[in-house]
Structures are given as C-alpha cells and as structure tokens.
Simulated assay, not measured.
Amino acid sequence: MSQSCNLFLEKVKQFSQCVMAPKALIFLASGAEEMEFVISADVLARGGVEVTITGVPECTLVKCSRGVRIQPDVCIADAAKRVPFDVIVLPGGLGGSKAMAQSKEVGELLKEQEASGRHIAAICAAPLALKAHGIARGKNLTSYPSVKNELLDGDHGYQYKEEKVVIDGTIITSRGPGTAFDFALAIVEKLQGKEKAQEVAKGMLLSC
C-alpha cells in the first residue's frame, strides 16, 4: 500500500475517533472541590473524552473551595444547547454542591440526562444535588461521610454504601478527594471500556 494511502487511512481513523469521542459536561460552581474537579476533567481528557466545563450559574471565573480560580468554557444556558452528553459530572465541595442543588438549569439537565438513560456521576457532597432534583431515586450510592444522613433523610429510597466508587446502572458516585482518581477512571471505563481505563491508569502510575 502506498505511503499516501496509508496517510489518508490514518487521517480517516483520527477523524473517526474525533467524531465518535464521548462527551462529558462538568458543572463548576463557587465552592467546588478543586481536586475533584481537576482530576475528573484531566483523567477524562486522558481517556479520550471531550470535556466541556460549564459555569453555574454563569461563565465567570469560579473560586473553588481552597481558593483556586478556574474559568469555565461556557455558561449553563449554552451548555444546554449542546446536549446530548454521554456523562454529566458533578464535583463535590459543599458550596458548589449547594449551588448545583439550587440551580433550576442543573436540575433540568440532570432530569433530561436520567430520562435519556445517559450517565450521571457525582462525588463527595454532590449527591446532595442529585437528591435536590429527584435524581437516582432508589439507587445505590455513596458520598462524603458527613452528608450521609442528609442523603438518607426523606423518601428518595437511596441505598447507602461505604465503597470508594458505587455504580448503579447509569449513576456513578464516589466519596471525596482521595477517591477522585477511582471516580474518574470508573467514568472512563464506562464510556471507553476497561482497557482504556487501565491504559490511562498505567500512564499515571496508578493501579486500576
């Protein structure tokens, strides 16, 4: 086969991979836990997932829980025009989680995501936003330990687990900063397969 033909086929392969890349939307609100946000965004990108960061409520510079400032890509109104996303990711941090819980736009996106059978992933205190919007009723989940009782209060029927990452159908939850790599790799595995997740973990010198 000629060199030009090989180059053409390689370009076609790269184009196909780009077109078929899974898409992730990550919410970012004031008070978000920056480790959980950055690790999730970074690991997903390493896993070949196209990541969009949306500010809640606006596309302004976001001050995270430890003072790190991050600029979102788009505001949430614009993000809503880009659906569908293969996964919506909610980082923790109490302030950020409360902002997501209070956002009508977040609720609408999450409800549409769940109704369509696509993935939703929340870590640390972020499952509180799932509860606020009536998401994942009756599902197995986990969270940061201090919000466990608040999650279980009410009639949502959550089944609480103490594992690092809990997956129940299309719902993925995790516990906190120390489990952020496990959380992000679990999302990569769901979207791109176990082999890809292992490849990403190996590149970061992590076990998967």
Rank of each mutant, 00 (worst) to 15 (best):
S103W: 08
K104E: 14
E105F: 07
V106L: 11
V106Q: 04
G107D: 11
G107R: 12
E108M: 13
E108I: 11
E108T: 13
E108R: 09
L110P: 06
K111Q: 15
K111I: 07
E112I: 09
E114I: 13
A115I: 05
A115F: 05
A115R: 15
S116K: 11
S116T: 04
G117S: 13
G117L: 13
R118W: 08
A121N: 11
A122W: 08
I123Q: 06
I123K: 01
C124E: 05
C124N: 04
A126F: 07
A126N: 13
P127W: 03
L128F: 11
L128D: 14
A129P: 07
A129N: 00
L130Q: 06
K131V: 07
A132H: 12
H133I: 06
I135K: 12
R137M: 08
G138E: 06
G138I: 06
G138D: 05
K139T: 09
N140I: 04
S143G: 15
Y144Q: 07
Y144A: 11
Y144M: 03
Y144F: 13
Y144P: 05
S146F: 15
S146R: 11
V147S: 09
K148Y: 12
K148H: 02
N149E: 14
N149H: 09
L151A: 10
L151P: 01
L151S: 12
L152W: 02
D153I: 00
